[in-house]
Computed example of a mutant assay.
Amino acid sequence: MGLPAVALSAELQTVNIALIEYEEDPRYKDNIIDARYQAQPWGRLEVAAKLAIKESRFAAQKKGVKFELDRQSVSELSALPELIQSLEAQGTQYFLLDLPGEGVKQVAQASKKPSSLLFNLSALDNNLRNEYCQANLLHIAPSQRMLTDAMAQYLVAKKWKEVLVLYSESEADTRYLKSLQTSAKKFGVDIVNEKPFKLGNDPRQRYRNNISLLTAKDDYDVVYVVDHSGEFAVDVPYSIIQPRPVVGAAGLVADWWHWAWERNGAPQVNKRFMKKGKRQMTGYDWSAWMAVKVIAEGVLRQETFAPNQLLDTLLDKEFKLDGAKGYPLNFKPWNHQLRQPVFLTSLNRVIDRAPVEGFLHPVNNLDVLGNDRGEGQCDLSKSTASGAK
């Protein structure tokens, strides 16, 4: 009985999927991982990608293919172009990018083969979906705008429209703040004040690192903490002067996956991941799991495996995926962002899901999150043949 299985294995076409990581990625520092901050990675993404490969293996075999994960890393972002071009020369066409935004941009610029597909797993930078968008770059992780849009919808729905913003002056949080400002203007949230904070306990910086002093004078419904790392935000709930909710990077947090989501098959996904990874699944893990699902589903939709035509398959208006989030998911044709709902979460509960009830769109309700068609500087739909909507 063993010989047919061996023969079958020998006949399968191997499809290599490269997972690209940055060894010095600050998001994966031990203190960040150990702290388990909300909406932050809790571990590397290899486990999630391998889980999706395992789940897809039988369907893939029927198409005569098998997926294999090739994990690669660089110690310097400047090494990415050489790595990507080397892998392309070896025949790799599918790349899962667990990189900061600058790394994703470098890979996109370095990729020389139009048939190579780059899947952004973890960079939330709006500019990757805007001025730096590229036809073969698909975004599985949501943009920062999608997350701030989701939170703005929830604040409006709860009538918590007067918002005090605390933010760091880092480059990442400057971009985060700009995204929040855009979302606030779009949905009618009033930012009553914006105050910079500084992580630490230096008494000379007490007006920036003392949460009581930062939140004492203004009149507000809610405090929004703009903190891309979560290190300052974790101390803000229950430390502000007025009895008000805290949202943003702590308290109520917009996230694209949460282990406490109990519908749409999510408990089964979480259980399988927990068994394999020995921890709870995060949005970052979901991105890796989902990216492999996208590739596998695209391959299965083709009559015969045609890797050079997979992008057209993925962008076809009939292409939809189940991400265990309750909506059919597909890609926005204008910037290749995966349409998806966003969860509003506490530490151990999903409080709501955006699009929040009452926020509608004439074509697809998921398009009330992030850039809509015609917004920004990216319109890739003009260069694709699928005609997706």
Rank of each mutant, 00 (worst) to 15 (best):
Y207T: 15
H361Q: 07
S212A: 15
P41Q: 12
P114T: 02
K332P: 06
I241R: 15
F305A: 08
F273M: 03
N371R: 07
A110N: 13
Y94G: 01
G43I: 02
S170Y: 01
P114D: 10
R208V: 01
K198M: 05
H336I: 03
Q93Y: 05
K389C: 12
L118R: 11
K278I: 15
S115L: 10
S346L: 15
S168R: 02
A172W: 08
D235W: 04
K325M: 15
L117H: 06
A291Q: 04
A254D: 01
L147D: 08
P267V: 10
H139E: 12
V350S: 09
L45Y: 10
W257L: 06
S116N: 05
N335Y: 07
A150N: 12
V294G: 08
A79E: 04
A250Y: 00
G374N: 04
E11V: 00
E171K: 10
L77F: 03
G283N: 01
Q85T: 07
K161M: 08
G230Y: 13
L177S: 03
A89C: 06
K178C: 00
R279D: 12
E24M: 11
L118M: 12
W261T: 08
Q38S: 10
R175I: 01
A35H: 09
N130S: 12
L164T: 09
D34M: 11
N364K: 05
V236Q: 05
L344T: 04
A135R: 13
D202K: 13
F331Y: 10
K271N: 04
K332G: 01
F343M: 11
Y132Q: 12
A141I: 07
